[in-house]
């Protein structure tokens, strides 16, 4: 648990919240196998099942981060092993682009990760989850701005100002 310079910005007992989108045919089965083998991994990860990594919509990631997740993990079958033959090839291209776009917008690379984990790789699933949780824990909470920052409007003259104003020609 290597929290770097907390400075009281967030509670000491803060736990990262990670959402893992797992492909039904490989990673979800791999996670199941990890459970069957009684492997221990942090409870910070919430596993969500998707039919295929090709189903992974970039919007899910933005929504997850907007709604308070500290990190997102997307997992699917190894390229070549997709149940639907080509789904993860499309996912790979899409996620390559999307990951770069998020990093361009200032997201830390550790907060959005993609991994290929097969149904037999229970150990890899556990290791991946552990490493992602540790990396995000080191970064601290993701504080994305949600509301538009308040700014001061210039004061608009109202009727009272007009009433109080002394016409120039009267004073002269």
């Amino acid at each position: 648990m290597s929290v770097v310079e907390n400075n009281g910005a967030y509670p000491e007992n803060w736990e990262p919240k990670i959402i893992a989108f797992c492909c039904h045919w490989c990673t979800y089965t791999g996670a199941d196998l990890a459970g069957l083998n009684r492997m221990n991994y942090p409870a910070n990860v919430r596993v969500l099942r998707i039919p295929c990594s090709g189903r992974m919509n970039p919007q899910y990631v933005i929504e997850a981060l907007n709604k308070g997740c500290d990190g997102v993990l997307v997992c699917g079958c190894h390229p070549g092993d997709c149940h639907y033959v080509t789904g993860n090839y499309y996912a790979r291209r899409r996620m390559l682009i999307f990951k770069r776009l998020l990093e361009y917008e200032g997201l830390e690379p550790e907060r959005f990760q993609v991994r290929w984990i097969s149904g037999a790789e229970a150990g890899k699933f556990r290791d991946t989850v552990m490493s992602v949780v540790e990396q995000v824990r080191a970064l601290g909470p993701l504080n994305l701005t949600r509301e538009i920052p308040a700014f001061e409007l210039p004061r608009i003259p109202d009727d009272e100002d007009a009433f109080n104003a002394v016409p120039e020609e009267v004073t002269a």
Partner: peptide, 24 residues
């Protein structure tokens, strides 16, 4: 309800990033 009706940074970001991914 893909994107909400509020005008705030979170939803604007959602729209902006999705627009780029759709037409990229």
């Amino acid at each position: 309800n893909w994107v909400g009706k509020q005008n705030n940074v979170a939803e604007n970001r959602f729209y902006g990033l999705t627009r780029v991914m759709h037409i990229g």
